[in-house]
Design a protein around this nucleic acid. Sequence first.
DNA 1: TATGAATGAGAATTCATTCAT
DNA 2: CATGAATGAATTCTCATTCAT
Lengths: 207, 207, 207, 207
Amino acid sequence: MARTTGSEGSRTEEAIRQAAIELIAARGFEATTLRELAGRVGVQPGALYRYFPSKAALLVALLVDHLEFLLDHWTAGQPDTADPAQRLRAFVDFHIRFHTLRRKEVFVANMELRSLAPPDYRRVVGLRRRYEDILTAILADGLRAGRFRLPDARVATFAILAMLTGVGSWYRESGRLAKRELIDMHTQLVMQCVGLQTDAPSKETPR
Amino acid sequence: MARTTGSEGSRTEEAIRQAAIELIAARGFEATTLRELAGRVGVQPGALYRYFPSKAALLVALLVDHLEFLLDHWTAGQPDTADPAQRLRAFVDFHIRFHTLRRKEVFVANMELRSLAPPDYRRVVGLRRRYEDILTAILADGLRAGRFRLPDARVATFAILAMLTGVGSWYRESGRLAKRELIDMHTQLVMQCVGLQTDAPSKETPR
Amino acid sequence: MARTTGSEGSRTEEAIRQAAIELIAARGFEATTLRELAGRVGVQPGALYRYFPSKAALLVALLVDHLEFLLDHWTAGQPDTADPAQRLRAFVDFHIRFHTLRRKEVFVANMELRSLAPPDYRRVVGLRRRYEDILTAILADGLRAGRFRLPDARVATFAILAMLTGVGSWYRESGRLAKRELIDMHTQLVMQCVGLQTDAPSKETPR
Amino acid sequence: MARTTGSEGSRTEEAIRQAAIELIAARGFEATTLRELAGRVGVQPGALYRYFPSKAALLVALLVDHLEFLLDHWTAGQPDTADPAQRLRAFVDFHIRFHTLRRKEVFVANMELRSLAPPDYRRVVGLRRRYEDILTAILADGLRAGRFRLPDARVATFAILAMLTGVGSWYRESGRLAKRELIDMHTQLVMQCVGLQTDAPSKETPR
DNA sequence: TATGAATGAGAATTCATTCAT
DNA sequence: CATGAATGAATTCTCATTCAT
């Protein structure tokens, strides 16, 4: 379904969101001016205020929508198994796909938390926390079942998320690696990280 | 040599650097104003220009010094062994110690690359690259020696650095974990990640 | 004739006028926005332009109508006597009644003259002048007849009008004084002011 | 003593205050722009912020200083008598002198109360109240001594102040009347108003 | 008769930077 | 070595107004 085609207005709003993500990812929130944003969208700066009451509110809308979208998608595509290793595999696959697909949103959501006013910050961090909890639950499950060898489920959550999310900051569609390879590689790394042996071959970095 | 003993001026410069790191870490470079910086240092804004030709130059100085300090310290304390596993252990220890000690500098260096003008950006990224290369070399060594099982030394470098650097964003001196534990945990995670078995015990997350 | 029965439209126009008086009295003309006005009326800002060609024209309409209403009412209820003292008494009564009844209109008419463009200013001041002239004529009559003792009929006009109009700025229906008392008090003050003895009792201010 | 001659800065501040009074008196506070104010002073708009933290604060400073100046001057020149009639005479003289001398400040103080934020409003109204109380005290004295015939000291205070203050809104130095005449006329009006007989001659308005 | 979308001009305010002293 | 005064350019945001529908 998604946003129905709609009037002038809803198309303008979508255009603003798109352009905002692009600009904020490129320059940072503070360094992004509404003038430039309006210019990209092809309207006057004042017109932005029909859609967002302030620059800050625009950022909040972007981040909240992004995180809710992320959570919804995980929920919708959740793996049909209770096996922790299988679930972890699915999580890595999901995370990398999502984070390479919506690279800019992810980048913005990671970089601009500090541009949020305290109440907005709490709201956004709350949503992010729910995503972290998904991974923590998988790791804790695996630990409990004696399948994973880990020092601490929460620390490992942060470690693995940092590792996986980092991908978005250097991966380019046009680069050396196909997305399939990327996922396979990180699956191997994560699996080993939680103490599972993999039979993936080792290969040296080509230069 | 440089700023050692401390005339009035060099003490002021140190104070500016300190305050700048603090402010930029807290608000971001764009959101940090020279007025506020000057206020913290206890001088008028104009006085800052005795020490740095521009706000941008101040950031560059901060980042370059930080990265050179990082590289110097690794070089100075380099482990006295050729064994890849030992070297990797040493790297993790060094990295986490440094990144928890100089948390704010690290945070700024990771967040504010995009605030740099292209030539400065290249310079700083060049330094950072030299640090990454240290880890890549260790991993490639271990691969060549058949000691590590890894998909790709470069990808693993990014993955491990992201994992380790992430620590700085949530670790607090006053938190649940002692620094020793932190290092042990991440050593275990990294060792497993590169395919080495560890004998560290698994423990569940306390609630 | 004019806005009597009330199609949709003429009811809307009345609502606009009402809301405008209220808002302008509260915030001043410049500080009143058409957005807020429209909001109170329950329409979109653009709809106001069906009724008034501009914000400035709205103000003019308000002021002119108010002053014409004032003059019409005096004319309609004019006292049936040539005696200056009687006429003065009637004027005070009329003025205070009108100025407490239509407090907000009066307030706006006194405060917002300077918001008028020169031609509108002249028109409105012309109407106001006709009202002042009513009092001047009474005073001049009384002087000529040797009944009043006054330095100058015009100066006294301004003085008395200022005195009486001032009431509107502090009088509240719900306050300490009934309207009847208010009128009696000011009648006494004005009568004494023009040199007539009154037999009204003096009373001290209660605390 | 007064503001000592002083640096560049204090001269600029004085110039800002002067120009601000002039502009605000002419156009109203809301309609006065900092651009225009700066233009009159001969500086860039931003420079105003060295002297006042906001447009609103500038207005407050103007009003508070004006009212304190008014109160100080009355106190300094207070009449050397306890006789209510004499004191009332002195008050009228003082008030009209002051209100014709500092016409614009007075006008602004009367018109722009509503442009103040609530706390500032309370502060300014508090000062104004202290001035009103001076007149109320004189009237109450005269009443108690049986010298004045008045309905109510507080109501009479408002009435007389309105009458006297109104002068500032039409008096021009260059007009028909000398300031001496103006004061004499209003003294007569006020004296009669409180029920004292005067021996001033009546004269008709020349046309 | 009214709406919804947008404009264009201008508002207050902020900020890096300069420079005479 | 540092200040105090000021600049000039930009920023977010507001608002009266227009107009196709």
